[in-house]
Design a protein around this nucleic acid. Structure first.
Lengths: 255, 255
DNA sequence: CGGAATCTTGAGCGGCTTCAAAACCTGTGG
DNA sequence: CCACAGGTTTTGAAGCCGCTCAAGATTCCG
């Protein structure tokens, strides 16, 4: 759940997202190096999109469901979706938040696909491309690079996921929330006169950071009082990332 | 750390490990469906092994180190290794325990490999095959199936890893330890007159289950007193798996 | 305006972790 | 054969972080 954040960002366009450098001290990789369609020729890419089906989803729709047999590969054109799993007790655990350029259903590249790992649900109006298993599967045979791109993405997920895991067993709730907030900010944040704007609820933030619902609220409030960020319903504006990172060690010298 | 367990089991031999059914109620997949070399022709496999370099390691040797650039692909011939990462504070967090038939260093299939994710350290006398990045990389170009196998393995890891994560945020320490014990038992356990023998220390078990060192000792003792298992230095013998699973709900009605 | 979703704030407590110290087991070498 | 050192395990006691629960305030939207 935690910082799983980062992800691909390329696709249709000939331009590839460049790796941006962050005001983050640690060596964690916040931006992925490649997307699913990286290194394919323009013709191939055109071909792929020509074979895609476009879908339009309203907010709050479920696209795929955890455990279902994987039949379609998806790539997000515009919008964002939550990718999560549900515990036996019914709690939803966010694995990652995907946005434009990200893909899911990678299992469909396999001849005998494994079931979808998580459930994908739109957070806003979302458009996405989809391909059916037989087609994508045939296509992979001719373009092995696709399988390699998927492998790279998968390995990056594993790394990010183990990052989150390490944080969960060795960091404090506070530390984890800063990590998560920074990562989500970098991935899906929007420029804002006052800083970096992130559209996310406390609940989702908490789930991504693997902390309690209320704990998140308390921490965010503390930071708001410190002037590090602003908070309103479903939105966070990070004013100074540096200070946010600093909080971890500086702790609450006040209160 | 947790149930990461399962993994490939095929390779040189023409026989493929069949999926075994377990006395485990949940639908979790304890045995992987394929190994890295699945679906390659006999000739190809022979070819691959002909190009491999064999290594021999004594107990406690480090084979690869987390963050190092990935230069070699490894496949375990015989023995077992711990695959772990280290927290900033120096604690070792076990990601998975690998054994014969398992491979690591999958990032080397990529043209531009990502660094090794974890550190691999032998637990016993271990023999393994290795291939250098340029070679394996060239080979993948001609045999895309390799990339697909690696992708499948990666996706299975992601699922197992998120399983572990869900368990960590929603299950009790006790529940997690039973899960872990069963998984390790199935993967690396040996037949034993009294039940299933698992060679592992409390410390490693605890790390895989994401629980404290001492908590593991206490739980194991409780179960030993209930006659569910036997414990000695570095070894656990599971007498009745069913009861072990039952513990979770049955709790300690005694004490 | 009403209702639903989101967020705040306080108080209590509980499952694990942490720390300390001692017992134990195993292989090694004298 | 015994003793010793290293790694492993046990057991007790104390304490804390963050979860849980309850109840209210706030914001949004139709």
């Amino acid at each position: 759940m935690t910082g799983v954040a980062s992800h691909p960002h390329s696709q249709a366009g000939p331009k590839r997202a460049s790796v941006i450098t962050l005001p983050v001290s640690s060596k964690q990789q916040l931006r992925p190096t490649t997307g699913l369609l990286t290194d394919l020729s323009k013709d191939d890419i055109a071909n792929i999109f020509a074979s895609a089906v476009e879908h339009h989803f309203t907010k709050g729709r479920t696209i795929i469901r955890s455990e279902d047999p994987a039949t379609h590969l998806f790539l997000i054109k515009v919008g964002s979706v939550n990718y999560y799993r549900v515990t036996p007790e019914g709690r939803e655990i966010l694995l990652i938040r995907l946005s434009a350029g990200d893909s899911f259903g990678l299992g469909t590249l396999l001849d005998k696909p494994i079931g979808y790992i998580g459930t994908a649900e739109t957070l806003s109006e979302t458009e996405l491309y989809s391909w059916e298993h037989p087609w994508i599967c045939r296509y992979v045979k001719d373009h092995p690079i696709l399988a390699l791109n998927a492998l790279r993405i998968g390995l990056e997920y594993i790394r990010l996921y183990s990052d989150r895991h390490l944080a969960l067993v060795s960091d404090s709730a506070e530390h984890r929330l800063t990590r998560t907030l920074m990562q989500v900010g970098v991935r899906t944040g929007q420029p804002h006169p006052e800083g970096l704007e992130v559209n996310i609820t406390n609940e989702h933030l908490a789930s991504l950071a693997d902390i309690g619902y209320f704990t998140a609220s308390r921490l965010l409030n503390k930071w708001r009082q410190n002037g590090v960020l602003e908070k309103s319903r479903g939105k966070v504006v990070i004013r100074c990332p540096e200070k946010l990172l600093g909080q971890q060690t500086a702790q609450t010298h006040e209160e």
